[in-house]
């Protein structure tokens, strides 16, 4: 049931290792407090299929690596007030972006990954969303409001940022954020 008193929060998992979501869950007992104030309306850890309307805060993990992700991110952007890049893949491309050094051609990348370096049964997967030429950080695709770098970002920092935002306080990352 929608609760008008609670902040509507969503989390999205793009091309990342899920470590940022793990870190989010690592807030431990702070999650109990958080649960009093927020309603999780979309997330890989809840069973809602379509990104809903009127989301207050969306945390996005992972880089934008394929067309489906690009579509979802753009879709989420227009339905979200505050969009946060969560973790290095979303902020910089990070490990997901390592393929960018290899080639800007999806075909060449797939060949490298699934044919040349395959030990058994080399084949390029079909019926999966088409790769973008490069894995991109979120802000190269949509407008991003806040950034929480880190691989993964520390649970305490995620908690701090969300806490500040819910209280309407400014978020200054000086001395707090850290790549890697």
């Amino acid at each position: 049931m929608p609760d008008p008193a609670k902040v509507r929060v969503a989390t999205i998992w793009l091309s990342g290792c899920s470590g940022c979501h793990m870190s989010f869950l690592d807030q431990d007992e702070a999650l109990i407090d958080l649960a009093q104030q927020i309603q999780l309306v979309y997330s890989p850890i809840v069973d809602i299929k379509v990104f809903p309307e009127n989301v207050d805060v969306t945390l996005v993990e992972g880089a934008v690596a394929n067309e489906d992700q690009q579509e979802l991110l753009k879709f989420a952007r227009v339905r979200t007030k505050i969009l946060i890049s969560l973790g290095d893949c979303a902020v910089t491309g990070n490990v997901t972006g390592l393929r960018n050094s290899l080639s800007n051609s999806p075909q060449a990348t797939l060949t490298r990954a699934f044919i040349e370096t395959a030990d058994v049964n080399p084949q390029i997967p079909t019926d999966v969303p088409a790769l973008l030429p490069k894995a991109l950080p979120l802000h190269e695709v949509v407008k991003v409001d806040y950034y929480i770098p880190g691989c993964p970002p520390p649970a305490g920092l995620i908690n701090w940022v969300i806490g500040r935002l819910m209280r309407g306080l400014p978020v200054n990352m000086e001395g707090r954020s850290k790549f890697g």
């Binding site: 000086e174 001395g175 707090r176 850290k178 790549f179």
Partner: peptide, 11 residues
């Protein structure tokens, strides 16, 4: 990395 942290370069 340290300088980026200190100066708040978060992206």
């Amino acid at each position: 990395q340290k300088l980026a942290n200190e100066l708040g370069v978060d992206h």
